[in-house]
């Protein structure tokens, strides 16, 4: 039994999502190979070789993989994946994009967003916005899986796997990259932040998020948002936490001016400690909060900032 893990990276650096997917692979058991597909991604391969438990790193270094286009990556992973018992990727927007394509080409199901490994063929995954957890058994010869990274702890970097180039690049030739507008932030990414402070519609506008940023900087926190805050244009889409945004599980999650709709809870209710600050005592967010503060955020947040 050998497991293929698809690395998540930006051609320069490996993302910690990969450390977590390797942890899920280790829970399944067997040898673990990592595929790094990108362009000029040698440094990423070196990093992947250090992941504990990995025996081999395969590098597909070709211009057609530079932007992780699903059409090209899907073909590569389906082709390479034939020789494996399991193919795993992070349930990130990259993994969700190409992996179902590979599964369909292999004529097998995909198991999305696993949060637990019970055995080599049985896994747990949430559905209905996390209001139910299904234990599913796969009868496919190749198990294609995306991993909810917030549910697994990163593996260490004590390994020294071999690195091998592979050279069967196929450009499907039906799609191309045009441009990207990526958010640059000094603060930790939501996926790896130890503390997250999120704002909702109660923040009233984008400028007011500066109040949360000041608190975040004191706590070394990432800043998130509800869908309402993103839809209203207060902050960019990549800050959305929830069923259809990012799923996070930090040590501390502070929800400010967020009511606690099921779709928002789906993205943060596995956080270790939850704090809610809301002026409405009936807000459903208080039902999942370890510590609730009924207050006007425009008073509470400046006070919190000055006292930290």
């Amino acid at each position: 039994m050998t497991i293929l893990v698809i690395a998540e990276h930006n051609n320069d650096a490996l993302k910690t999502d990969t450390h977590k997917v390797v942890a899920a692979a280790a829970a399944i058991g067997g040898d673990i190979d990592v595929l790094v597909a990108g362009a000029n991604c040698g440094a990423v391969a070196e990093q992947a070789a250090k992941l504990t438990g990995v025996s081999k790193v395969l590098v597909a270094d070709n211009a057609c993989y530079e932007h992780q286009l699903a059409e090209n990556l899907g073909l590569l992973v389906a082709d390479l994946g034939k020789g494996y018992s399991h193919i795993l990727a992070a349930a990130s927007t990259t993994g969700k994009n190409f992996l179902p394509r590979s599964a369909a080409l292999l004529d097998v199901a995909q198991i999305s967003d696993i949060i637990r490994v019970d055995s080599a063929d049985t896994f747990a995954r949430p559905f209905y916005a996390g209001n139910a957890i299904a234990t599913v058994k796969s009868n496919d010869s190749i198990k294609v899986i995306t991993v909810r990274t917030s549910a697994f702890d990163s593996v260490e970097e004590t390994g020294s796997a071999s690195v091998e180039s592979i050279d069967n690049a196929q450009d499907a030739g039906i799609s191309s990259y045009v441009r990207s507008e990526l958010t640059v932030s000094e603060r930790p990414e939501l996926g790896s932040a130890r503390v997250i402070i999120s704002g909702g519609r109660g923040m009233q506008n984008g400028d007011n998020f500066k109040m949360l940023e000041e608190v975040a900087d004191k706590l070394g926190a990432g800043v998130g948002a509800s869908r309402a805050a993103v839809d209203a244009g207060f902050v960019p889409n990549d800050m959305q936490v929830g069923q259809t945004g990012k799923i996070v599980a930090p040590e501390l999650y502070v929800a400010v001016g967020i009511s606690g709709a099921i779709q928002h809870l789906a993205g943060m209710k596995d956080s270790k400690v939850i704090v809610a600050i809301n002026k409405d005592p009936e807000a459903p967010i208080f039902q999942v909060a370890d510590f609730g503060l009924e207050a006007d955020l425009f008073e509470a947040i400046p006070e919190l900032n000055s006292k930290l």
């Binding site: 799609s175 191309s176 990207s180 889409n237």
Partner: peptide, 9 residues
């Protein structure tokens, strides 16, 4: 996408 927006043709 997770980091912002990407446009493809």
């Amino acid at each position: 996408v997770d980091g912002g927006l990407v446009t493809v043709a």
